[in-house]
């Protein structure tokens, strides 16, 4: 039965893996775009999170803010995922064994779960606290968890590079 290590070695030998690891500019270019995309994801999510927590913009409707921010957030997220996967193909075995890299994805999963709970449960009652009233504690908690998660994701992402040498 093929193991994960076999799969990782296979990824390394794909044309993408060969290009990213051997090209002089491929990795740097992808990393630049990856960091740009992650920065936009963080910034846009922070705008919504800060509104949920109650730090800014109580006059603006939560629904309107989400509607505006979501297309940019998801597009940037798709770009960061695509560039991230390509970066991964350069050294799959090393990334797999990198503790900071693992933490980053564990926290990303947590952020995803938090978002799912917020969307499916808390956000259903948004009409009651859309604007000019305080966001219920569940919404504020979701905002705080999301903000903290994304700060940690960026930090562990950066830390990953220092454990690769």
């Amino acid at each position: 039965m093929p193991s994960i290590t076999d799969a990782l070695h296979w990824v390394e030998q794909t044309p993408a893996g060969a290009f990213v690891s051997h090209s002089t500019w491929g990795f740097s270019a992808l990393l630049s775009v990856h960091i740009l995309a992650v920065a936009i994801v963080f910034g846009m999510i922070a705008m919504v999170d800060l509104r949920l927590i109650g730090i800014c913009g109580r006059q603006s409707a939560v629904t309107a803010l989400c509607r505006e921010a979501l297309p940019w957030t998801w597009s940037a997220f798709a770009l960061s995922a695509l560039t991230g996967m390509l970066l991964f193909t350069a050294q799959p075995v090393k990334y797999w064994g990198n503790d900071a890299f693992r933490m980053k994805f564990a926290i990303l999963a947590l952020a995803g779960l938090n978002m799912l709970v917020f969307q499916l449960i808390t956000y259903r009652g948004v009409a009651r606290w859309d604007r000019d009233t305080a966001v219920p504690w569940a919404g504020r908690l979701a905002g705080a968890i999301s903000l903290a998660s994304w700060i940690a994701i960026v930090a562990y992402g950066r830390w990953t590079a220092y454990l690769m040498i």
Binding site: F42, A64, A69
Partner: peptide, 26 residues
Amino acid sequence: HILANGLVLAAIIMIDLRVWRRAGAE
């Protein structure tokens, strides 16, 4: 540096969205 960079970009995107499409909640 990356986090602050993200906030700068997001703030400009949010302002631009209002400038480009003037009708809206806020």
